[in-house]
Design a binder for these strands. Structure first.
Length: 500
RNA sequence: GCCGCCAUGGCGCAGUGGUAGCGCAGGGGCCUUUUAAGCCCAGGGUCGCAGGUUCGAAUCCUGCUGGCGGCACCA
């Protein structure tokens, strides 16, 4: 390994080469730059708390481990900021207070290096909690420098592509992902307390059902069959209701072969819950409870600043039929138009709404709601009475044009989707047959027919309530994140040219 | 998939037609209490990629790649 920097080379190449040289010199001295064990007795934050108040006084010896993010050498004294997950502690080596060798060794380390340090806690003249070094061991030499110490990593591409650098240089990033974990744990705890069983169903499915979305496809070599990554959890969880489990949920990734945006990632985390002998009312209550659990777990206030304005997540959330919201917010009353689809279509187009391919009254109503009402609905609001045409898995309501379904809308976004589940196998067969017909006509998002699922219903599924919650969007809402990429550790990006 | 904006040393930025500059980081040196330490010295990029216009392009044009935002689809 050459120790001479390349003449006229790239700055980064020079840095790496220089650091490699340092690593090599350490190795030659019998100090391996990687792979040494070290077990700190204390976290940096805990050590800082043990520092005596009086200047000049020293505490009992202890050890910490972490990454050096700044080194300041001033002649015979060297300061280094050691960071671990808990916080930071300043390491100090001075000719009068430590072995001279330690001053030397600390001084030749680089920002980014991970070290183990032993010493006595004390306070510097300026009052900074510090550790007077009595021992120092390099645990991992960093060959590349950390991000800019002043500004951190501001290029969003780099933040997402090399998340570890973002986490390292932005304390807020780590905090956000800790909140995400807290929220997910809060949801699980709330469900566990209510007697729900967490299950795992296939990610690879022969028929990707339960939602309207285009799937990713793959192939199983040994089986010689095509498989799809699941777009929803619904049909397998309902099979479990047939099987006698009465309260089940699954929280995990689903995959949709669709566009990427600040609110969409091709893989995202979905929570689906099914409760035998539940209905729409029990799902509303559960939904409110879970949103509340998420807010509490995140340590957030129920009064949240969203892109659309201030939102209060204090229950209860009001419930409003879709047709009522449309009439109120667009002035278009769907009721008198229901028997006159042609006029309905005209009125819809007059509002500037892109009409659906199949212009039935229900689809027209949904189009107006979807394009004009939902995006402007601050909420929280349970939007109820969805047209049957757009809800092939939900039970009909008293008015057979509509199903017993709600979506929870907050700040113009769907946060949850719930039904009284359809358990009539004959009706389900008709609805899925209709979906298959639309699919054959080229509607790629219509649901494929799943004979095995219908057969399961023919064995008898108890009446049930079910709900799906977009976990990433819930996390965004309660943490105030603007982009879904901010709440996903490794969001979807195109492969960079170098790794394509 | 469509539209708009962006792309300069490791990081953050300036430079809108005459052959690139600043701060941080990195290298050498001074300094025993610093904490965005300070001071001195030297170094590093041909300006995302490929073409084109021009006597001459980081700077104008075209295409491509990547990112961001919006639309479409959806959660």
């Amino acid at each position: 390994m050459s120790q001479t920097p390349p003449a006229g080379g790239h700055a980064l190449a020079q840095i790496i080469s220089d650091r490699l040289g340092k690593a090599e010199r350490l190795r030659n001295r019998g100090e391996p730059p990687w792979g040494v064990d070290f077990h700190p007795s204390s976290s940096c934050a805990a050590a800082a708390a043990l520092v005596p108040e009086a200047p000049g006084e020293e505490g009992e010896p202890l050890s910490v481990a972490g990454r050096l993010l700044a080194l300041r050498s001033s002649g015979g004294i060297v300061f280094a900021d050691c960071h671990d997950e808990s916080g930071a502690l300043q390491l100090v080596a001075s000719r009068e207070g430590s072995q001279p060798e330690l001053v030397e060794r600390l001084g030749e380390l680089d920002p980014g290096d991970i070290v183990g340090a032993r010493g006595r806690p004390f306070r510097t003249q300026r009052g900074e909690p510090s550790l007077r070094l009595e021992g120092l061991v390099l645990l991992a030499k960093a060959l590349r420098p950390p991000a800019d110490k002043r500004r951190g990593l501001t290029d969003p591409e780099q933040r997402y592509r090399r998340r570890y650098l973002d986490l390292l240089s932005e304390p807020g990033a780590r905090q956000l992902f800790r909140q995400r974990s807290d929220i997910i744990r809060g949801l699980r705890r709330a469900l566990d307390e209510r007697g729900f069983l967490e299950v795992e169903t296939p990610v690879l499915q022969p028929i990707p059902g339960g939602g309207d979305a285009r799937p990713f496809s793959t192939h199983h070599n040994a089986l010689g069959s095509d498989l799809y990554l699941r777009i929803a959890l619904e049909l397998y969880l309902k099979r479990l209701l047939v099987g006698g489990f009465e309260r089940v949920y699954e929280l995990g990734p689903v995959f949709r072969n669709e566009g990427v945006s600040p609110r969409h990632n091709p893989e995202f985390t979905l929570l689906e819950i099914y409760q035998a002998y539940g209905n729409l009312a029990s799902m509303q209550e559960l939904c409110q409870d879970l949103v509340g659990a998420a807010v509490r777990a995140a340590g957030s206030s129920p009064a949240l600043e969203s892109e659309r304005g201030l939102v209060s997540l204090e229950p209860p959330f009001p419930a409003r039929p879709m047709a009522e919201l449309v009439a109120e917010l667009t002035g278009l009353d769907p009721e008198p138009l229901w028997e006159d689809p042609d006029r309905f279509l005209q009125e819809v187009m007059r509002l500037g709404v892109e009409p659906p391919a199949q212009a039935s009254p229900g689809r027209l109503l949904f189009a107006v709601y979807d394009q004009l009402v939902e995006p402007n609905l601050l909420g929280p609001c349970f939007v109820t009475q969805y047209p049957v045409e757009v809800s092939p898995l939900a039970r009909l309501g008293p008015d057979p044009r509509f199903v017993e379904r709600f979506e929870l809308v907050v700040a113009g976004r769907e946060l949850a989707n719930a039904f009284s589940e359809l358990n009539d196998p004959l009706e389900q067969r008709r609805r899925l047959t209709e979906q298959a017909r639309l699919r054959a006509q080229g509607e790629e998002e219509a649901q494929p027919f799943d004979e095995d699922f219908v057969e399961a219903l023919e064995h008898g599924m108890p009446p049930a309530g079910g709900i799906g919650i977009g976990v990433d969007r819930l996390v965004m809402l309660v943490t105030g994140a603007r982009s879904i990429r901010d709440v996903l550790l490794f969001p979807a990006l195109r492969p960079s040219p170098g790794e394509a």
